[in-house]
Simulated assay, not measured.
Amino acid sequence: MKKILLAGLLALGFAVPGVQAAEYKIDTQGQHAFIQFKIQHLGYSWLYGRFNDLSGHFTYDKDNPDASEVVVNIDPASIDTNHAERDKHLRSDEFLHVAEHPEAKFVSTSFEDHGDGTATLKGDLTLHGITKPVTIDAEHVGHGPDPWGGYRRGFRGTTKIALKDFGIDYDLGPKAREVALTLSIEGVRQ
């Protein structure tokens, strides 16, 4: 019960004596966070895109980084490949089916700090109405004060997901079965 109460207090942002974890809000207002993707098109070229609308938060304790937690909410309708007709197709029921699945979400389950500025972040990704575990290779980019009186911390992460794992089975060729994701997350300490 004490663990549940402590976790609840941290989630609400209350200061608990002796606890060093800080909560950070992902800075999407200043566009200092993004999720990009790339996938091969028919095996002939790479298609790049991003999700323009996301939000979330993370906790980080420099003395106990393995206790870090991350939650990211993604609006799949905000997909942007710099081509309006393709984006419309990607929002359709043949791909993301955003009318039926208006939200994608990542919730961390573990964070393993390697002591060299890198870490392994594991969690559950919900996309297209299906939740699967994913592993993200993370890099701690940096932290410190910003010019507006705040304090920031940033991470970069990469992973690959198989479209079929999330119920997306559109044939773009044998080399287009996996999507590579790059996540750049900068948070402002609350």
Rank of each mutant, 00 (worst) to 15 (best):
T126R: 10
D113H: 09
E178S: 09
A119G: 06
Q31W: 10
S55F: 03
V71N: 07
T182Y: 00
E103P: 06
P102Y: 14
V70E: 05
A119P: 05
E69H: 13
W148E: 01
V98D: 00
G142C: 02
T159W: 09
H101E: 10
A119E: 06
G129H: 12
M1P: 11
G13H: 11
N73H: 12
L163R: 13
G173P: 03
Q29S: 14
H101V: 05
K132T: 07
T126A: 04
A15H: 14
Y170L: 02
Y170K: 03
T59A: 10
L6K: 14
L6H: 12
G117L: 04
P76T: 08
G18V: 12
E139Q: 14
D171V: 04
H89R: 04
I35S: 02
H97C: 06
A22Y: 09
D66F: 08
S108L: 03
T109Q: 05
M1Y: 13
E178K: 06
E100Q: 13
A180S: 10
L96Q: 05
V16R: 13
G167H: 04
D61I: 06
Q40N: 05
T28F: 03
K25W: 14
D146K: 01
T59L: 00
D113V: 09
I136R: 04
D87T: 01
L54G: 03
A99K: 15
L47C: 11
F155M: 05
T182V: 14
S68Q: 11
W46M: 12
E112G: 09
A15P: 08
A176S: 15
Q29E: 15
G150K: 01
D93F: 10
V71Q: 13
H89T: 09
G187F: 01
K88C: 06
D169H: 07
P17W: 14
A33N: 00
V19N: 12
E100A: 04
P174W: 15
L9S: 12
Y151I: 03
D169C: 08
L9A: 14
F34Y: 00
A33M: 04
L183Y: 06
T159M: 11
K160Y: 04
A180K: 05
G13A: 04
Q36A: 15
T81W: 06
L47V: 02
G167L: 08
L121S: 08
L90H: 08
F155Q: 07
S55I: 00
Q190V: 00
T118A: 05
E94W: 09
H143T: 10
D87K: 03
K175G: 08
D87A: 00
V98W: 05
F106H: 02
P102F: 13
V70Q: 01
I168L: 07
D137N: 11
A77S: 14
D137M: 12
Q29P: 08
A77M: 05
L42D: 07
H57W: 11
T81K: 00
T158L: 05
L10A: 12
G154D: 11
L127C: 01
P133T: 05
L96G: 03
L5N: 00
V107F: 11
F51V: 02
